[in-house]
Structure formats: C-alpha cells, structure tokens
Design a protein around this nucleic acid. Structure first.
Length: 590
RNA sequence: CGGGGAGUGGCGCAGCUUGGCAGCGCGUCGGCUUUGGGAGCCGAAGGCCAGGGGUUCAAAUCCCCUCUCCCCGACCA
C-alpha cells in the first residue's frame, strides 16, 4: 500500500504546539501523528496509528515467540472482582468509575489481575494445566492526578500485560525469568536502551519486582547508576557500603556543651564554628560531623503504630521513599505532638542517642545509618533544650537497635559494587515485572489440585509493558532539531519519496518508483503534492522521520534521484534504474 | 492538594498597564505568477476575546465569581 501525501489525513504544524514541552509530545503533534482529545487522552492519526501498530506487532511477536498466549479482555469491567481484592477502594480517585443503567458500579480497567485470575479459575483446576502464561494488549484507564508529556503519561494508554500461573515458587521463578528475557529481547528489538532496577512491589504485593527504565532526561523515575561499572538501581534500593570500624581508644570523652538556639543542623554547625572554645583544630565543623535523629511514626498493617528513631549523618536528609521501602508493609506517618508528648525524653531539635533505644529512657526503637560505625565521633543532641553532646563515640557511648538504609542517596556516593562515584539519572518506566505470589489467587480463590489431590493456591506473576509509552520513549530517543527519526521497523513507512519540480517528469518517476517498491513489499509514503513548494516537502519529510528519503527533483534530467538517510543526512545520487535494488538492500540491512 | 503560568479566527501570538472600529504571522478559499529547504502579488472567508455577574455613554481591556488548560511539586504497577 502506498500512502499519498496529497490525500493523507494529515496536517503538519509549522510551529510547536503551545501545550507541548517534551520532544516526543511536541514532534508527534507537529508531525501529525497524534492529536489531543482531552487532557491525557489522545487520538491517533494515520501516521501515528501505523507507527503504534508496528510497536504493538513487535511486542506481540516477541510474546508469542516466548510461548505466551494472547487473549483479549474487556476494558469495561464489573466492580465485584475489584471489590474482592480490595482494589475498588485502594485505587481511590485513580479509578475511572461508572454505572450501568441498572445502577451497577462498573470501572474502566486500570490493570487486569482480577479478570485474568478469574478466567483461569473458570477454566483450569489441575496442576497438570500449569504453568500457564497469557497476555493481552489493551487500553488501560487511570485518572492520573496529573497527566503529562503527551502519550508518555496519559489517562488512557495501551499496555501489554502478561500473567503467569504456577503451582509453586520454583515455577513462578521460571516464569518470571522467561518474561524477563522476553522483555530484554523486546526492548532490544524496539531499539530502546534500558536499565533493569529492582523496585519495591508496594501495593502490588509480592516479593520480587523489577523495573525496565529507558534512560531519558524527561523520564519521571529517578534512579542511580554507576559512572564506571554497569550498576543501576532504584534510589530506594541503593545499598551503602559499611565503612570499617575505627579505633577509639584515645578518643576524648564525650562532653555536653551549651548550644543555645540550635534546633537545626545548620544553626548548630554555625554555632560550633562561632565559639572559640568549641572550634576544631584541623578544620571547621561541618554538617557531616553531626548525627541527626529523626522521629517518624510507623503504622503497621493492622493499624497499630509505633515511633521509630532514625539516626543519619547531619548532612543527609531521611529519604521517605527509601525508609518507606525498608518498613514495608508498614507505612510511614509524621509523628504528632501527642506522640512526642508520650515520650517526654524526646526534646525536639535536641534528640540524642543516649535517650533512645529499647533499653533507654525513651524506649523508641533506634535504627542507625550504616555509616555510623563503631569509632565514629559525633556531635548530637543531649536530650535537653539548647544542649548538644560533642565527641560522642559510636560503639563506646551509644549503639542503635540495628541499621536502616534511610539516608538520602546523592550523586557522588560510592557504588556498592565497584566503589566509584554514583550518578543520579532519569528514566522512562517502559516495563515492570512482578513475582506476585498468591495475593490475587487467594483473594479470588484460585486453587488447583496438586499431584496428591490436595487443593493448592496458584502462585502468580504479572508483567506490564507500556506499548504507547514505548512509542513515546522511542520518539524521545530518536529525533533531532528537524523532527523524528524512526527505526525502520517502527516507522510508518520504509521510504518517503518526494517529487518536486514544475514538470511532470519527477512526479512520473516518483509514481513508478513507488509502484515498483510497493511490489517488492517496501512501504512507501509518496509526497505527490503538486502545489506544495520543495522546501515545504523537504521539511515535512524531515519532520515525519521516515528513515529513507528519496527525492525526485532536478537530477531527473540526468536520469538520477537523490537518496538521503534521515539519521545521518548522507545523500547519494543514484541512476533511476538502480534505485529499487538499492533500497531493497537498504531496507533489508536495517 | 500546594506553587507558578495561560485562556483572543484552525495553529502560534500581539492588544490589557492608560476602556473608544478586534489585530499580526501561518494556515484555508479564489485568481495570476512561482517550484531544491516552509514562494510572490491581488482578493476573500473565518472570532459572543473561556463562562457568568458588575462598573461605565462605552469593556478583550477595570472589579467580583466560576470553569478550563499547561508547567513544577506531592501522588502514581
């Protein structure tokens, strides 16, 4: 099939749309691939839809090749299964809810664990049926608080979601690994760079989960990567190398000092440096010499809560996400005035380790950053207003009840694998795989008989891959100032033929080439517009981003056309008769 | 939910401070000319200035209220 610019349902924009910031959004709208229909909701135009279908096809081929079976579930779903797993409530405002004419609650599927689980329960009842991996490509609906960046984060988006069903943990691990490999192959074929970072399973439940992040400035997920080796990790999960313990035999004894009006680390450091009798000889005091003790409230799943004290070097904040991941499945909350009132030993702004810990006066569980090893000397709160302790030595004067990875991770911190500096990076989450376990099978009572005739709960995995988001990620990684530059397999066409000139000849040559290429199975976009100026056509071709551009123009009189590689801008002139063979070769190579 | 910005022909914007015929560029339609990097000239169509209320002889412009969109943050399989 030959697409003709003269009749194509397309309008390219000369200027950037006012509401688009990120490159993929800007260019996809400008080049006439998508149009905004409502906030976070987009319509696909012919070029965009062909491109989208290519991405979807590649994903589908890779899933099929891995032995997963495609099915298709409705997007419009009943409330009941989501009620049973608790997600009707848990999803909150994120869920698009509606009612049918009888008043029954319905929803637009944000994800389909429940329905897949019920479908398997409906059909299967024996361990002999397992393992099973099934998937679909479906539009998902989430009423995001803030949709952004075009199709990178929409309220309606396309996702390939797979689900695996196994009889035991070993089977789940095998299914998980198969999906992991299938994802690697899929993203390789899509031409997307990615890093795999371990993630917290959070609300999805389960033990193991990994995210596939495509490195990209406009991505929403921050992660940490090593500047030297290939270590990459979710920020929450970065490990901190434990420094060696220091000798402290000749360390001075701890002493309490008056430090009026110093409830913050900054004010404390300034005060220490301003007092001649407190100054250090070797260098000024800095925030990292202080030990900051932060009180948070941990709310357990049952609803009980307790206070927790976290001690971190004063130059670092407690990263709530990181701490939250450590206490999961309990949740974090801010400690209230009442909480503090219950522990008179805790003096806000002047909390020190001597009052903390299971055996101390405050009896608040006290966890320390791994950097606080025995022998390190600290300035920290003396548990009295306006007083701090200097030269408090870890291991001699205080201990924690354990360690916790709660301090923020910063660029320059050492890589846990090789010790070289880490860097902060951003990425687009293009895939997320979970070893779910039995959460959904239990809630929905999916059991099969095992070889002993005993009912066992099936264990599950779920594996998401954002198809429309992957397209946006590909666009983010494949463009220049002039427009998009598609990898051939993704591109809406293989070759963009531009005819230009005032005579019929170039147009006739272009038509003939288009027909010949089409006969060879090469997909052609033909710019057969007579009225458009050459400049307009060339700019449109660069904007649209088809990988090979053939210009039938002024060289026609020499029997030649120009072939340009969109990515490298390399141009060659070729005799007309050689063009088809040449392009067949070019298309086969890339 | 917090902070910032913006709503004016299809698109991108000016006009608002200081009230007085609703403008510019692009696009669209017709005509002539033009064809290698978004062509030229002539003519034309197309706008309740987000909505509601108010002030005024007169409101895109001033005042009050509402709505919507975009960006940053919070949130988020």
């Amino acid at each position: 099939m030959i697409l003709r610019m003269s009749t194509l349902f397309l309008r390219t924009l000369r200027e950037d749309p006012a509401d688009a910031e990120v490159p993929s959004h800007r260019l996809l709208v400008r080049a006439g691939y998508i149009r905004r229909t409502a906030p976070g909701i987009y319509s696909w135009l012919p070029l965009g839809w062909r491109t989208y279908l290519n991405v979807e096809r590649i994903v589908r081929e890779e899933m099929d090749a891995a032995g997963f079976q495609e099915i298709h579930l409705p997007a419009l779903l009943p409330r009941e299964p989501y009620e049973r797993t608790g997600r009707w409530t848990e999803y909150g405002d994120l869920l698009f809810r509606l009612r049918d004419r009888k008043g029954n609650d319905m929803l637009l599927g944000p994800t389909h664990e429940e329905i897949f689980t019920l479908l398997v329960k409906d059909l299967y009842s024996s361990y002999k049926d397992l393992p099973l991996s099934i998937y679909q490509v479906q539009w998902k609906f989430r009423d995001e608080a803030r949709p952004r960046a075009g199709i990178l984060r929409g309220r309606e988006f396309s996702m390939k979601d797979s689900y695996s069903f196994d009889i035991d943990d070993a089977g789940l691990q095998r299914s998980y690994d198969k999906h992991r490999v299938a994802y690697q192959q899929t993203f390789d074929r899509l031409g997307l760079d990615y890093v795999i970072v371990s993630a917290m399973s959070g609300a999805m439940g389960g033990s193991l989960s990994e995210e596939f992040l495509s490195p990209c400035e406009v991505g929403e997920d921050t992660y940490v990567r090593c500047t030297s080796c290939d270590y990459a990790s979710n920020t929450e999960a970065v490990d901190v190398p434990v420094p060696e313990a220091l000798a402290y035999a000749d360390a001075p004894a701890a002493h309490v000092e008056d430090t009026p009006d110093t409830p913050t680390i900054d004010s404390l450091v300034d005060y220490l440096n301003s007092q001649p009798h407190l100054r250090r000889e070797d260098r000024p005091w800095q925030a990292s010499d202080t030990l900051k003790n932060v009180i948070v409230k941990v709310v357990h799943p049952g609803g009980d809560s307790e206070l927790l004290a976290v001690g971190v070097p004063g130059d670092r904040d407690v990263d709530e996400k990181r701490l939250g991941a450590q206490v999961y499945p309990s949740a974090l909350a801010a400690a209230t005035d009442e909480d503090f009132a219950a522990y008179p030993g805790l003096v806000r702004g002047y909390i020190g380790p001597e009052a903390l810990g299971e055996t101390k006066t405050a009896k608040v569980r006290y966890l320390l950053d791994p950097r606080v090893v025995p022998g390190t000397r600290w300035v920290t709160g003396a548990n009295e207003p306006d007083k701090h302790v200097v030269d408090l030595v870890a291991g001699r004067d205080f201990d924690g009840d354990g360690t916790v990875l709660a301090a923020e991770v910063r660029a320059g911190d050492p890589c846990p694998r090789c010790g070289r500096p880490l860097a902060m990076a951003r990425g687009i989450e293009i895939g997320h795989i979970f070893a779910l376990g039995t959460k959904y099978a239990e809630a929905l009572d999916l059991k099969v008989l095992d070889e002993h005739g005993k009912q066992v709960v099936v264990t599950m995995g779920c594996y998401g891959l954002g198809v429309s988001r992957a397209l946006a990620a590909i666009a983010e990684n494949n463009h220049d100032a002039k427009g998009l530059i598609w990898p051939r397999e993704i591109s809406p066409a293989d070759v963009h033929i531009v005819a230009t000139g005032k005579t019929d000849a170039p147009f006739e040559v272009a038509e003939r080439l288009a027909a010949d290429l089409d006969a060879k199975g090469i997909r052609v976009l033909l710019d057969d517009r007579r009225a458009a100026s050459p400049g307009e056509k060339f700019n449109d071709a660069d904007l649209i981003g088809i990988p090979t551009i053939v210009t039938c123009g002024r060289r026609i009189v020499d029997g030649k056309v120009e072939i340009k590689d969109r990515r490298t801008s390399e141009r060659i002139d070729l005799p007309i008769d050689d063009v088809v063979d040449h392009l067949v070769e070019v298309c086969a190579e890339s």
